[in-house]
Each structure stands twice: as structure tokens, then as C-alpha cells.
């Protein structure tokens, strides 16, 4: 991980902590703030990938993957923002589905890392995946009690932020050729 990536990872962790603060201590509609931040960041990522596709990636083999990625991000971003003023319960359902999705991805990634046998970092990934899925299940159980659901969601965010900080400062082997 480069210094720049480490800083990015730490900034992401700081942003997560800020969201936790907003959700728990400020008297505003927490889920709506989350949806807005998530939606804008997805839109920006999609836009960045779209520019990259037209400037460079369309000339490369399998470059369409970048286009599909950008469309997916833009679509997801627009969809997220469009849900800004709906019932908070639906927003919570949406966030919990995202939790399951990330949990599933983390478990798949852990399996891949373990199969390659490169390090013990698969344990991190696996625990991350399990926590996300447990949070999603607990969130669904307490979905009628919005306050409990938000606390559970904040716990998942906190776990993710701490993980990001640990990964940023953990020495990682890198393969390069000369």
C-alpha cells in the first residue's frame, strides 16, 4: 500500500467515524445523510471511470469492464440519491442489503486469499464478512425499532473503520518484477 493509499484509507475511516457521530449524536435524519453521502460518492466514482474509459480504457483488451463498472456505479449512485426522501425503513433495508452484499464479497475475497496462501489477512476479511452479515441479520430483526437498527449499523461502520486503519498500517508484501 502506498503512502497515498494509506492516507486515503485513513480518510475513509475518518469519514466513517464522522457518519457514526452524525447518526448517533446529531438530531437529523441519519439514514438520509448516509444515502446522500453514499450516492454522491458512487456518482463521482462512476463519472471518473467513464472519463477513464473514453480517454484510455476503450482501447485496451477487455476495456469494456471499465465502462460496465462506471455505468453500474452511476446507476447505483442515482438510485441511492433518488431514495433520499422515502420512508427511513426502506433506507435501512437498502443499507442492510448493501451490508449483506459487502459481507458476501468479503467472505469470497477471504476464500481467495486463503486459497493463494499468501498471508493470514484472510482472517481479517472473513471476520469483516461475518460481521457485515450478522449486522444485516440483527438490523432486519430490529428494523421496526429504528434507534436500535442505527446503533447496530454504527457498530458495523466502526468495525469497518478500525479495519481500514489496521490495514493501512499493516506491512504488506508486494510482488514486483525487474
Amino acid at each position: 500500500m502506498t503512502l497515498f493509499q494509506k492516507i486515503k484509507s485513513c480518510l475513509a475511516a475518518a469519514l466513517m467515524m464522522a457518519i457514526i457521530f452524525i447518526l448517533l449524536f446529531l438530531e437529523i435524519n441519519g439514514p438520509m445523510v448516509i444515502m446522500l453521502i453514499l450516492g454522491i460518492s458512487l456518482l463521482l466514482s462512476g463519472l471518473k471511470d467513464l472519463i477513464y474509459f473514453f480517454a484510455m480504457a476503450r482501447y485496451m483488451v477487455d476495456g469494456r469492464i471499465i465502462l460496465y463498472k462506471s455505468i453500474l456505479y452511476l446507476d447505483l449512485g442515482a438510485f441511492t440519491i433518488s431514495m433520499f426522501d422515502i420512508n427511513p425503513i426502506y433506507i435501512m433495508v437498502y443499507l442492510l442489503i448493501l451490508c449483506v452484499f459487502y459481507g458476501f464479497l468479503s467472505i469470497m475475497r477471504a476464500r481467495e486469499i486463503k486459497r493463494l496462501g499468501s498471508s493470514t489477512s484472510w482472517i481479517f476479511k472473513l471476520s469483516e464478512g461475518i460481521v457485515y452479515i450478522v449486522v444485516a441479520v440483527l438490523g432486519l430483526i430490529f428494523i421496526r425499532n429504528q434507534n436500535v437498527a442505527i446503533i447496530i449499523y454504527c457498530a458495523a461502520l466502526f468495525f469497518s473503520a478500525v479495519n481500514k486503519i489496521i490495514v493501512a498500517f499493516k506491512p504488506q508484501p508486494v510482488f514486483l518484477t525487474q
Binding site: 500500500m1 502506498t2 503512502l3 497515498f4 493509499q5 504488506q172 508486494v174 510482488f175 514486483l176 525487474q178
Partner: peptide, 12 residues
């Protein structure tokens, strides 16, 4: 040349 860690440590 650059060592692997030199590149990893460098600002991108």
C-alpha cells in the same frame, strides 16, 4: 532501479 518497498512507500 527501485526496490519494491521504495515504490510502495512512495506517494503516487
Amino acid at each position: 532501479t527501485q526496490l519494491s518497498l521504495e515504490m510502495v512507500d512512495s506517494n503516487k
